[in-house]
Design a protein around this nucleic acid. Structure first.
Length: 506
RNA sequence: CGGGGCGUGGCGCAGCCUGGUAGCGCACCUGCUUUGGGAGCAGGGAGUCGGAGGUUCAAAUCCUCUCGCCCCGACCA
């Protein structure tokens, strides 16, 4: 009888996907819950992943002319009130600062004192305060386009939080731009969406569907919202980046006006775009397996760990010296235009070391012992392969090939994710099939089911709402890349000219 | 915010129904032995049972309130 090998994470994805996710985050040492409700502590292994994502994305923005700046954490209440639908969208989840001092009360407890004349809102997003600044910065068409980005934290008082996926406070970047023409603003909106798609696919190895949001799913105050949607292993959709065409709504609200070449006063066209630490959750949920995280090599916190093996105390210095020789050689190797990031784990804890790194998702584990040294080789294990599958490689070959191996892993996990996404994206034309697709077999404890339903939708709000009501399924996006095709709405049967992606979502 | 579940050493859990001041596995520390792989043996440190109040001679166990977490729903990156 074949022995079922115990996985490092329990429960498995199949047994309980949500719980698996919690356990993976814990086991990988990426983040943990904090004493503050809904807020997380991002630990070094998670934070360096974030730093690598930031670095790549930041470079991409700068290549398109965007400059970084920083705006206040606090937004005067009055600013938020300026754009009606914007307030409506965010009012329910704002943290508000009402006092500026603490005093001891009779019991010796600190209590807020010194009420503010105007309360300050902790930014849920910065359109309004950046818009206010833009109104001062822009006076001529020569000042446009204005392309600004900030890396910041924001706070949205969420009812239900999940580490990395939805926390009350999270880290992100928010880009904000102002343009002289509608056309240029729309081009920027799409360019930033393409940038996110490139980051997701080429760096995070997350295949995504680019598209446009329906009116119901739009950013509060936007004319159009574009997004990239990824499919997780429980077949739910995760929005991994958004780009908003704000029309002239915020320009009117904040007074971003300029004098055109024709000497007319005009409102600018503005755009905003954002991506957050949520992407880390996406990486975990898309690539992870029952042994933990699998990090995409290009942004991995570290790409390779060296694990010295020695029988006798005498072996130790020799092995360490050999490893240092290899790491010195690696300093001359570039992968994805960056230096190879490595760790050396010389803890004396035997085989448990290897499992720690498997759970953390490091792409390559390299064991080095006296036997390898004797042959001038190393023993290499890849995180995208079964944990026992290891290959002996000559040292020089390893150093020469490491970039290629990392590339292979990157490609391998992307392909795997893509085929999973494709396999679970289904064109569905009838209401009966549609309802079946999204209905779990076991209502009590729903199994992983559904996926992306690529179906016709008539465009009516009522149909979208009914499906949401019945199945908790929403329109994730109207994919940009699709051929026009006549069909019938899966909900009401009326005429439709294009398909949309329906899915359950995070 | 509505429905459900749960809070016991770092992690996972038992004990609670039938009150008598805490136990297991992993992790951690020390020693010896092991050593190509999530090591073995021996010894050891660590929790007062989410918090507050109540009932009682006595509460992790019963009652009330409260906070937090997780799942489903509404809302959202």
């Amino acid at each position: 009888m074949a022995k079922v090998e115990k996985s490092a994470i329990s429960p498995t994805r199949e047994e309980d996907y949500s719980e698996w996710y919690q356990q993976v985050v814990k086991a990988s040492d990426m983040a943990e819950k904090s004493p503050v409700r809904g807020c997380m502590i991002i630990k070094p292994w998670g934070y360096s992943l974030w730093e690598n994502i930031v670095r790549e994305l930041d470079d991409m923005f700068k290549e398109t002319g965007v400059k970084n700046a920083y705006f206040p954490l606090f937004i005067p209440l009055g600013f938020l009130e300026k754009e009606a639908s914007h307030v409506e969208g965010f009012a329910k989840e704002c943290a508000v600062v009402t006092h500026h001092r603490l005093e001891k009360n009779a019991d010796g407890r600190l209590v807020p004192a010194g009420p503010l004349t105007e309360p300050l809102v902790v930014r849920p997003t910065s359109e309004t305060i950046i818009g206010d600044a833009f109104s001062n910065w822009v006076s001529s068409y020569r000042d446009l386009p204005l392309l600004i980005n900030q890396w910041a934290n924001v706070v949205r008082w969420e009812m239900r939080t999940r580490i990395f996926l939805r926390t009350s406070e999270f880290l992100w970047q928010e880009g904000h731009s102002a343009h002289a023409t509608e056309k240029e603003a729309m081009e920027r909106t799409r360019l930033m969406l393409d940038t996110y798609a490139r980051l997701a696919e080429e760096y995070l190895a997350l295949p995504v569907t680019k598209g446009r949001k329906t009116a119901a799913e739009r950013f509060p105050g936007a004319d159009e919202t574009f997004c990239i949607e990824a499919m997780m292993q429980d077949r739910k959709a995760l929005q991994a980046g958004t780009s908003h065409f704000l029309g002239q709504n915020f320009a009117r609200a904040s007074g971003i006006k300029f004098q055109s070449f024709e000497e007319k006063e005009e409102y600018a066209w503005t755009v905003s775009w954002g991506a957050s630490t949520r992407m880390i959750g996406g990486i975990i949920m898309m690539h992870g397996d029952d042994d933990g995280v699998i990090l995409p090599p290009k942004v991995a916190s570290s790409q390779v760990v060296f694990i010295p093996i020695y029988r006798t105390p005498d072996d130790r210095p020799k092995v360490m010296e050999y490893i240092e020789k290899i790491t010195a050689e690696l300093k001359g190797v570039l992968y994805c235009n960056r230096k190879i990031r490595y760790e050396i784990d010389d803890r004396d804890t035997g085989g448990a070391r290897g499992w720690d790194w498997i759970k953390k998702g490091i792409p390559l584990r390299v064991e080095v012992g006296p036997r390898d040294m004797a042959q001038d080789s190393v023993y290499v294990a890849r995180r995208d392969k079964p944990h026992r599958e290891k290959t002996s490689m000559k040292r020089d070959v390893f150093v020469k090939e490491i970039s290629n191996i990392l590339d292979e892993i990157q490609k391998n996990i992307y392909d795997k994710a893509l085929s999973y996404k494709n396999k679970n994206t289904v064109s569905i034309d009838g209401a009966k099939d549609f309802y079946e697709f999204f209905t779990p077999l076991n209502q009590e404890k729903p199994e992983i089911h559904g996926g992306f339903a690529f179906s016709h939708w008539c465009g009516a709000n009522e149909c979208e709402a009914k499906i949401k009501e019945d199945l908790s399924v929403t329109i994730r996006c109207i994919p940009s890349e699709q051929e026009p095709e006549k069909g019938k709405c899966v909900c009401c049967g009326r005429q439709s000219s294009e398909r949309v992606i329906f899915a359950k979502a995070y």
